[in-house]
């Protein structure tokens, strides 16, 4: 039987582990850093670790419990995607833990199985969403009503290419580049065959689902909240994907 000190140590380990896991899921799903820090510190305080310290960046989390027996925990983050429902779910679980509706064991168990708890929209619905963004924004930005449907279809194709390349070839910026090439080529071919009216408008619409809007917003927020590591890092990530999109369109314009 473990004595009280060992049991306390095990408990502290578990709390640290849960905190790092929660932070990792939030950063991987595209949350801003101040929210991550806030959530982690709240969990630690509710679990009784008063002197906990956390250092979270875009690529990893370091956390110490502030107690002598337990060391620090490190969690590394290599992939980042956008999944707002996971952010909402971690937030909800942390609230429930604060209200003592679930204990730390249940909390950790839910975090480990978060992929089963959180449903993602099926691919056809995501593709439809991308088409919706493309088609409607052509009307909003360019006042171009006749090109609604062709932009809708081009945007759907662009998103599908991006989605499948992200799954099968894990080179991040290549998928943006090739999706942009496909969008540009399809738009120009459609106009040449008389289906579309203005190629520029269709390309603008088709690119909109791929534009890194969230990373840019998060970059500004992180930098302003004083996180000078994560803000610029996110900015560079957004800049590279914007450049990849731009080169893709430029190549399509040259060859088609």
């Amino acid at each position: 039987m473990p004595d009280t000190a060992t049991r306390q140590e095990n408990y502290d380990h578990l709390v640290l582990n849960t905190c790092v896991l929660a932070g990792r899921i939030m950063i991987e799903s595209g949350s801003e850093m101040s929210r991550v820090n806030d959530t982690i510190m709240r969990i630690a305080r509710n679990a009784g670790l008063k002197d906990a310290q956390v250092y979270a960046t875009l690529t990893g989390i370091i956390m110490s419990g502030g107690v002598k027996e337990v060391g620090a925990e490190v969690g590394s983050i290599d992939k980042r995607a956008f999944d707002m429902e996971k952010v909402a779910k971690v937030n909800e679980l942390s609230r429930e833990y604060a209200a003592k509706k679930i204990d730390i064991y249940q909390f950790r168990d839910d975090l480990v199985h978060i992929d089963d708890l959180v449903a993602t929209f099926p691919l056809w619905l995501q593709t439809l969403g991308a088409g919706l963004v493309s088609g409607t924004l052509v009307v909003v930005f360019q006042n171009n009503l006749p090109d609604f449907w062709i932009a809708f279809i081009v945007g759907m194709f662009g998103w599908a290419v991006y989605y499948f390349l992200n799954i099968y070839i894990q080179i991040r910026f290549l998928s943006e580049f090739l999706a942009a090439v496909v969008v540009g080529a399809l738009a120009l071919i459609a106009v040449k065959n008389g289906i579309g009216v203005k190629a520029d408008d269709i390309i603008i619409g088709g690119m909109m689902p791929l534009v890194p809007g969230i990373p840019l917003t998060n970059a500004v927020r992180d930098a302003l909240s004083g996180n000078l590591i994560s803000g610029p890092a996110r900015g560079i990530e957004a800049l590279i994907s914007a450049c990849a999109l731009g080169f893709g369109v430029a190549i399509a314009l040259h060859f088609f």
């Binding site: 999944d83 707002m84 429902e85 909402a88 929209f121 919706l132 963004v133 409607t136 924004l137």
Partner: peptide, 27 residues
Amino acid sequence: SLFIIKCICVYFSGIGFGLIVNLPHRA
């Protein structure tokens, strides 16, 4: 009439982007 069409389009563009980034259904 173009203004009304644009309003509807903006509404649907928000929903479409929500579908891409996997917003919770009730949001």
